[in-house]
Design a protein around this nucleic acid. Sequence first.
RNA 1: GCGUCCGUAGCUCAAUUGGAUAGAGCAACGGACUUCGGAUCCGUAGGUUGUAGGUUCGAGUCCUACCGGACGCGCCA
Length: 460
Amino acid sequence: MDEFATKVLEEKENFAKGEGKEKILLEYISANPTGPLHIGHARGAIFGDALTRIGRHVGYDVVTEYYVNDAGRQINLLGLSVYLAAREILGLDVEWPDEYYRGDYIKDLAREAIEKFGKDYFQEPVKIVEKNGKKEGVFEDENLSLWAKDKMLEVIKNDIKALNVTPFDNWVSERELYKYWDEVREILEKNGALYEKDGKVWLKSSEYKDEKDRVVVREDGRPTYLAGDIIYHWDKFKRGYDKYINIWGADHHGYIARVKAAIKFLGFDPEKLEILLSQMVKLLKGGEPYKMSKRAGNFILVRDVVEDVGADALRFVFLTKKADTHLEFDVDDLNKQDASNPSYYVNYAHARIRSIFRNKGIDYDDIKNVELKDLTSDEKDLLFLALQLPYVLEDAFSSREPHRLTNYLIDLASEFHSFYNKNKVIGSDRENERLKILAVVGSIIKLGLSLLGIKAKEKM
RNA sequence: GCGUCCGUAGCUCAAUUGGAUAGAGCAACGGACUUCGGAUCCGUAGGUUGUAGGUUCGAGUCCUACCGGACGCGCCA
């Protein structure tokens, strides 16, 4: 054990590092660029980032990717919403359709759009038509839609940064992928995946576990969203990774079968695609359910929560639980900066250790050559647990369950606090041995937290 | 109705993937050295793991049915 303890202190943040494992493409968040990230997105974001950090540390070549849904109806709806909001600001008549995005960010965008495009741009009223019993706005100006989309992407990038999520390696645009549609369609046809019916083109996804076949080209010739996703996965698989991981919101689970079917029809191995679901977060506020709807504009912004409690506390809360089970918590609880927040518990353990070294006026390096022998059982237990980190990391990544690392850190902190209350360090006749053990524990906590994207506190 | 997932202490969640007496935190109660930082520690209490069967040496974990909940069942994304 002494040998490993010394290794922890010598290698510091490089302890338990591996290399040369599988190449993995990890796609996550991929929220529509039609609004800022809300608390539901945060769970997937934090989950994906923890996986990335842990995976990279233990030696996987993890490449991260965000798929930008910058085509289709939602983007059009965004442009329409900004246009209408601008007219309202300008004091012009507005007839509201049934569906449009609202919320302060739309108004902010509208004000900016007036600056950028000029007042005259918004003179023409929006025609409203009845479609399937719903009032729909007719809006065809791509310029405003795409401009608004780019603005939203900037906002999302800032939200990602605020969450302390490692910057993405790739941003892939759905819009740009459609130019490969003919090529992909040819492959599908050659593999007998498509047929025509009622003037539409269908994918035989029911041949591979899907409930029914799916339309990929509409009657008017426009490919559907699924077509875009097929192109995207074709593009992914062509890039030749060992494994592909997608993190989706659990509400998309019904989509898995058709995408896997498509991959098979493209001639690739669907087993290489692993889809992880991040369950919805059920939020309460003051004990009452907090209903989130993007269109209604009453959702909790990542930005606001981070401003309120900090990214670290939010990350810790999410990373203590499995990502694919339901999670419920009260927004008001995030404001409580007390013991009910386990991130304080772990951080406190670290801060205590640092405090001991401050009092002693030395650092970890100064005691790394102390030989550990004849350890008491308390000392042995604590050191042994701290040295489990490499196994925990391996396990947390291969099971895709970063919460195992978090719970391990809570265990380790608990073991330490207990030890601390029972055993004097400074001034004891085993001072040097104990300092070395605490140095190991401190290093491990710091490293573990950093792999969760949390910075260990020196003082609290 | 069909499909996917879930149901563990009053509350929020764990349980080394089928292993020994199901564990933490919060809430409750009782204690701890005038502190190497009490944001801590020690203890008490709290459970027939939704219900009923089944598989086996062994089930919170696997299978079946039922009860309860979430989500999906768009030519939206």
